[in-house]
Computed example of a mutant assay.
Amino acid sequence: MIEKIKALWIKYEEIIAYLIVGGLTTVVSWAAKFLANFLLFDNTMYPTPFQNVVLSIINWTAGVIFAYFTNRKFVFKSNAPMLSEAPKFVLSRVSTLILDMVVMQVLTAVGVNLLVATVISAVLVIIGNYVFSKLFVFNKKKDGEAEEAK
């Protein structure tokens, strides 16, 4: 049984680590968002479009800072220079920020509660972030591809 668990861990380590880090990133970004909502907007559950944008930017900024360092270290185990990697990470996260803003505007405009809309948006954003991180930011060439590139 232990050997099976170890084998599954080895096979799916990156995805499991991403889900854990993604969950923690979600907690950090939501904490920032809801704290800002409490401090800035009297804890409204039906924010205006302007309030939505402000909350999304706060949510995004906290999440990006936390996610970059944790994904780099624990998920993708990157040793690439931060100066080449960080801008790609931020750019990929800008695209999912836009996705978050659009989803939040649409869902709250049709009367969906802020909490429910945030959960729906988070699922879409987490999937998008993984795809961008895997393919664009922390992509490692396979050993054979690296040898062929030389």
Rank of each mutant, 00 (worst) to 15 (best):
L83H: 15
L55G: 04
L83F: 15
S56W: 06
N79F: 13
L55I: 05
W30P: 07
M45G: 04
T25D: 04
A31Y: 01
R93Y: 14
V64S: 04
S78F: 10
E85H: 10
L40G: 00
V54L: 11
V64A: 08
M82P: 09
A32M: 01
F89C: 00
M82Q: 11
F89N: 06
S84L: 13
A62Q: 01
L83G: 09
Q51H: 14
P49R: 01
A31H: 05
W60E: 02
L39F: 11
F66V: 12
P87V: 06
S84F: 10
K73E: 13
N37I: 01
V54E: 13
P81I: 15
K33R: 12
L91V: 01
N79C: 03
F74I: 08
T70M: 07
V75I: 12
P49Q: 02
S56M: 04
Y46P: 01
R72L: 06
P49V: 00
V53N: 01
A36C: 09
T25G: 08
W30G: 02
F34T: 05
I65E: 05
Q51D: 01
T44Y: 02
L39W: 11
T48I: 04
Q51S: 08
K88Y: 13
D42I: 02
T25C: 06
P49N: 07
T44Q: 01
F41N: 06
I58T: 07
T70E: 03
L40H: 07
P81S: 14
A62E: 10
A36M: 01
T26K: 11
A86K: 13
L35C: 11
R72T: 08
R93C: 03
F41S: 07
N71A: 05
P81R: 15
F76S: 07
R72D: 00
N79W: 14
W30R: 00
S84Q: 13
E85Y: 00
F89W: 09
F76K: 09
S78C: 05
Y46G: 05
A67V: 10
V53E: 08
V75L: 02
A80R: 15
R93L: 09
A62H: 11
L55H: 07
I65C: 15
A86L: 15
F38A: 07
V64Y: 03
W60L: 11
A32V: 05
A86E: 12
V90H: 10
M82G: 00
R93H: 15
W60P: 07
L40S: 03
F41A: 09
V28H: 08
P87W: 03
I58H: 00
F41V: 04
R72H: 06
I65F: 13
N52P: 05
I58C: 06
T70A: 08
F69Q: 04
V64M: 07
S56N: 14
V28N: 02
N43F: 15
S56K: 04
S29V: 10
N79S: 10
L40N: 06
N52Q: 14
P47W: 04
S92T: 04
Y68N: 13
G63C: 06
K88Q: 15
T25L: 11
I57C: 05
D42V: 10
N37E: 08
A32L: 05
